[in-house]
Amino acid sequence: MAKEFYSDLRLGILGGGQLGRMLIQEAINFNASVSVLDPDENAPCKNLCDHFEVGALDDYDTVYKFGKRVDLLTIEIEKVNVDALEKLEEEGIIVYPQARIIRLIQDKGLQKEFFKQNNIPTAPFQLISSRDGLDNAKLQLPYIQKLRKDGYDGRGVMKITNENDKAKAFEAPSLIEKWIDFEMEIGVIVARNQNEEVKAFPCVEMEFNPEVNLVEYLISPSLLPHDIQQRAESLAIKIAEDLQIVGLLAVEMFLTKDGEILVNELAPRPHNSGHQSIEGNITSQFAQHLRAIFNLPLGETQCRTNAVMINLLGESDFQGLAQYVGLEKVLEKEGVYIHLYGKKYTKPFRKMGHVTIVNDDRAKAIETARSVQDILKVIA
Results as ranks from 00 to 15, higher is better:
V54K: 10
K46F: 14
N306E: 05
E26N: 06
M309K: 07
E4Q: 11
N281I: 05
T368M: 01
A267P: 04
K199H: 10
G274I: 11
T368F: 03
K68F: 10
G92Q: 04
I219M: 01
I186E: 05
I176H: 00
K146A: 05
R155H: 12
H289D: 08
A267G: 05
A363P: 00
L296E: 11
L218D: 01
G247D: 10
E207T: 15
Y143M: 08
Q288K: 05
K79V: 14
C203W: 09
P39T: 05
I128R: 01
V188M: 00
M253P: 02
N118D: 08
S220H: 06
V263C: 03
I28V: 14
D71P: 00
L139Q: 06
V80Y: 01
L327T: 08
E163K: 13
E328I: 14
N164A: 15
S273D: 06
E265W: 08
M158N: 04
E279A: 08
V215I: 15
E252Y: 10
I237V: 15
Q145S: 08
P173Q: 07
V34W: 00
K65Q: 15
D8G: 14
K65C: 11
S130R: 10
E252P: 09
S273K: 08
K199L: 14
R231N: 14
R155T: 15
F294W: 08
E196M: 07
F349R: 12
Q230I: 12
Y341R: 02
E183Y: 14
L224N: 02
D61N: 13
P121W: 14
F201N: 02
Y6T: 12
I237F: 00
Q117W: 02
Q18K: 06
D181Y: 11
E163L: 13
E207S: 13
K149A: 07
R21T: 13
D258G: 04
L218N: 02
H275G: 09
K79I: 15
Q323H: 12
L147G: 00
K347A: 12
F182G: 07
P39Q: 07
Q285C: 03
K68I: 11
H226W: 08
L223C: 14
S35V: 06
H339K: 07
L139F: 03
L223Q: 15
Q373S: 13
R131N: 06
N195H: 15
I189V: 15
V336R: 02
E171H: 12
H339F: 11
E197N: 12
S371N: 12
E185V: 11
E86R: 14
F182H: 12
E205K: 04
P39C: 08
L224E: 02
Y324Q: 02
L139I: 01
N213Q: 13
R350T: 09
V157N: 03
R362H: 04
I75T: 10
P142W: 06
A365W: 11
E183C: 05
I102F: 03
L104D: 03
Q98D: 07
G187L: 01
